[in-house]
Design a binder for these strands. Sequence first.
DNA 1: CGTGATCAACTTGTATACATGTGAATTGGC
DNA 2: GCCAATTCACATGTATACAAGTTGATCACG
Lengths: 230, 230
Amino acid sequence: MANHRRKESVADRVYEALKEDIFEFRLIPGDRFSEGDIGGRLNASRTPVREALYRLQREGHVEVLFRSGWQVKPFDFQQVEELYDLRITLERAAVHKICGLAEEPAALRTLTALWNPDHPSERAVGSTVRMLDESFHCDLVAAAGNREMTRIHREITDRLRIVRRLDFSRDERVDATYVEHAAILEALRNGMAREAADRLTRHIRASQRAVREITMERIREAAAAHRSEQ
Amino acid sequence: MANHRRKESVADRVYEALKEDIFEFRLIPGDRFSEGDIGGRLNASRTPVREALYRLQREGHVEVLFRSGWQVKPFDFQQVEELYDLRITLERAAVHKICGLAEEPAALRTLTALWNPDHPSERAVGSTVRMLDESFHCDLVAAAGNREMTRIHREITDRLRIVRRLDFSRDERVDATYVEHAAILEALRNGMAREAADRLTRHIRASQRAVREITMERIREAAAAHRSEQ
DNA sequence: CGTGATCAACTTGTATACATGTGAATTGGC
DNA sequence: GCCAATTCACATGTATACAAGTTGATCACG
């Protein structure tokens, strides 16, 4: 049998680096660049760079212009709304599936312990809460037991990360997250599928609204900072 | 502005050819091959072949074994079940969205005309009905107006095509498809979301059952035929 | 005959050279 | 000064050369 646990390839490294550049706004939506640029900056030849770019293209983060370079996909507000809608659809379906399972998934206990609103730790740092929030929703979907659904949800999570990080830049949203997650879990563990799904929907919609309010302003800031650096 | 209407690239051609080979069982799940094989057979260098293979890999049709060749992804029955479940989730969501729209999408009228059970044409050929059935479900999801949902549904449709084609190898399934589609559309156009969603679910589950019954037998046949050719 | 080390043929991963199209700067005409 | 045609640096698409790992056959040896 082949050994598939090989060390990280150059293509993987370039992929991760580019993804982070995009998520951290070091590459602004609309920015154009060439395969040669990236290769030079990350010390790689065009072949692995191209592989990484094609992956990012399939995931919707960049697009190629025929013989005229690449660009970070311009921000599409409607697309973000649609991704949020799709997320809600998938997570609601997951909740109903979980309530239909013969026995409660072990993951629910772990999540309940973690998202106790009285729990004092972890709450200080926004970026930590963001990652935990991501895990919460991904774990919830995973608990439903459909790997394909989990995979698609993961993909959507990746694409929304660039905007979701704005959600936790305000303390009241951090607090609300704890309360809302706890309420969702309680309903879920009591088998109240409808209740859990509705709470989950409201929770995601609240995040969506918060993000919507902050997004455009932040992007403008980042673009301005980016220009002044050049 | 860049001209994006360029002619089909070699990579595209290889991609389409490989996809058809897989769907037509000329490449059996489990078959192993190398990039060089494909390049030689389709008159292309390794670069576009690799690009095509990576696309197929992301779509779940093939996988690469580190420095040890490629193989058509072995058939995973659980994955097919999960994809069907996901399809149902998405199409149910689409139905509910459509019923929530301010006005009926124009596509519904087109579909209603096409799927009249009394309509005599088109019914003879199974492969035609298969394509029409695919269109029906894709158009239904598209009518909900969420492009991301449509895209994901399209991806799932692609991955299920290899098994769905088995559904229409029996006449009673062809007939049933007409009746079921018409009933779904009727409920949908009367704004009966619950009714339409439930009918749709039963329709897809019936297809799923039919496919499940035929799949293993067919794969065995194809594998046997394949072996005798060698 | 059985078994383990060795090795050569193949495989993918990566780098690089070449083909071809794009687009912006340049140049020439007015 | 302005505009259009031209040109050329540079972009991606493709082919090929090289690096590094896998695998299965082979051969030596018990």
